[in-house]
Structure formats: structure tokens, C-alpha cells
Design a protein around this nucleic acid. Structure first.
Length: 104
DNA sequence: GCCATGGCTAGTA
DNA sequence: GCCATGGCTAGTA
């Protein structure tokens, strides 16, 4: 459990229902401030295999980063967990962002 | 080579 | 709206 990817995966798994984290926040928590794109990549390739709550990860602007069908699916899943979207389809991070903290 | 980012500038109002 | 950035999976040989 040492690589950036392993840490990121365990962090993503810890996001509680009804809360979100951003790509950059996960990357920083996993030890690489510049790893946001790697987080995006691993979500894309490993979500299914690891059963990740991929829909609880959004970008730093509070937006869903998918297009088309993916966008609709993610928005639906988040709303189902009680997360509200503003009229411009954004999420209030101050309210819904999970403050990840290491538990040793 | 791939990626579902993010930060910063320019350029508007 | 542009572009620098970086760790590594999936799939072939």
C-alpha cells in the first residue's frame, strides 16, 4: 500500500455517501500535489475493478467533468445521495466537500 | 501514450 | 481558453 495509486484508491473508497472530493484534493492527500490527472486516469481505468465511488469525485470548480451520458449518470447518482446542484449544475464545495484526514 | 485537471493569463465589462 | 505535468494500466509479444 505505498504507491500513489494505492493511496489514491483507498482515499477514494473512504469518501462518505453524500459528500465529494476533488481530483486535486485526492492527489494532494495521496502525496502528489500534481497528481490530479493521474486520479482522473485511475478513476477511468480502475473504478469497476475496485468498486470505487467514482461519482463522488468532481473538479475543483465544483463541476462534473464528464460529458453526455456520463454527466447525466454522475449527476443522478449524486442527487440520489442528497447532493444539491445549483442552476449552473455546480456543487457547493464548502458544503459538500469531504475533509479527508489521515487516520494513521 | 493516456487522462474525468488545475492554475494562470488575457481580455472583457 | 491555453498548456505544462506525471504515474502507470491494459493489452500485446
Amino acid at each position: 500500500m505505498n504507491s500513489f495509486t494505492d493511496k489514491a484508491i483507498s482515499i477514494i473508497k473512504s469518501i462518505p455517501e453524500g459528500q465529494v472530493m476533488t481530483y486535486g484534493q485526492i492527489a494532494r492527500s495521496a502525496g502528489n500535489p500534481h497528481g490530479a490527472r493521474q486520479v482522473a486516469r485511475l478513476l477511468h481505468t480502475m473504478s469497476k475493478k475496485h468498486g470505487l465511488p467514482w461519482h463522488r469525485v468532481i473538479n475543483s470548480k465544483g463541476e462534473i467533468s464528464l460529458n453526455g451520458e456520463g454527466f447525466e449518470t454522475q449527476k443522478y447518482l449524486l442527487e440520489k445521495e442528497g447532493i444539491a446542484f445549483s442552476s449552473n449544475s455546480r456543487i457547493n464545495l464548502t458544503f459538500y466537500q469531504y475533509e479527508f484526514a489521515y487516520s494513521e
